[in-house]
Simulated assay, not measured.
Amino acid sequence: VNLLNNGLQAAASDHAAVFHIRLRAEEDNLFVNVQDNGTGITKDDQPKIFERFYRGEIKKRRTRGLGLGLTYSRLLARAQGGELSLTSSSPEGSLFTLTLPRWSGPEKTEIEPSYRATANA
């Protein structure tokens, strides 16, 4: 959701925001690519965008915010064993990739109840 919100904020004022979202699975990982048609992230800003409270010069002038969205998005991805990265960016837009481990779930097992309810008739 944060990537979509950022893409909306980065959209040029004379263009509608357009997103391309691609999902794919490969062996042990799931990949979610989110591409926008925004104004892009400058080369100078790219290494810093995942730092807490960092806001590029253009974003400081155009939108409100604390500079925590990408930081928390990356932390959330990592907490789930994944990663969030900026794959590419240009004046035509940015592409972020969210990688998450595939999880097939635990084996089905019978769980003993820890209590028994009784009804008095």
Results as ranks from 00 to 15, higher is better:
F31Y: 15
G40V: 03
E83I: 09
S89A: 01
T99N: 01
R55P: 14
R61V: 09
G105P: 07
L100H: 05
T42I: 04
F19L: 09
S88G: 00
G40K: 01
K59S: 15
N29M: 11
R24C: 13
L84D: 04
L75N: 05
S94N: 08
L66I: 04
T42A: 11
S88D: 04
G81Q: 04
S85P: 11
T99S: 08
R74K: 14
D36R: 00
G38W: 01
N37W: 05
E92P: 02
E92T: 10
F31T: 11
S94Q: 02
E92S: 13
L66F: 10
E112I: 14
A25I: 12
R62S: 12
P91V: 00
E107L: 03
L66T: 06
G69V: 01
R61Y: 05
A79C: 04
K48F: 06
G56T: 13
P91W: 01
Y115S: 13
Y54Q: 04
I49L: 08
R22A: 11
V18G: 08
F50L: 11
R78F: 14
G67F: 11
R61P: 05
E27Q: 13
V32M: 13
N29Q: 11
T42G: 08
A79R: 06
T97P: 02
P101K: 03
Q35P: 14
L68W: 10
N29W: 12
Y72W: 14
N33W: 10
I41Q: 00
S73T: 05
D28P: 00
Y72G: 07
V18K: 12
K59P: 11
L84G: 07
T87R: 03
L98G: 13
Y72D: 08
A25N: 10
G69S: 03
S73M: 07
L23I: 09
L30M: 01
G93I: 03
I21M: 04
A25L: 13
R61T: 10
L68A: 03
T109K: 00
G38S: 07
T39A: 15
Q35K: 13
F19D: 09
N29Y: 12
Y54A: 06
S114E: 12
T109F: 00
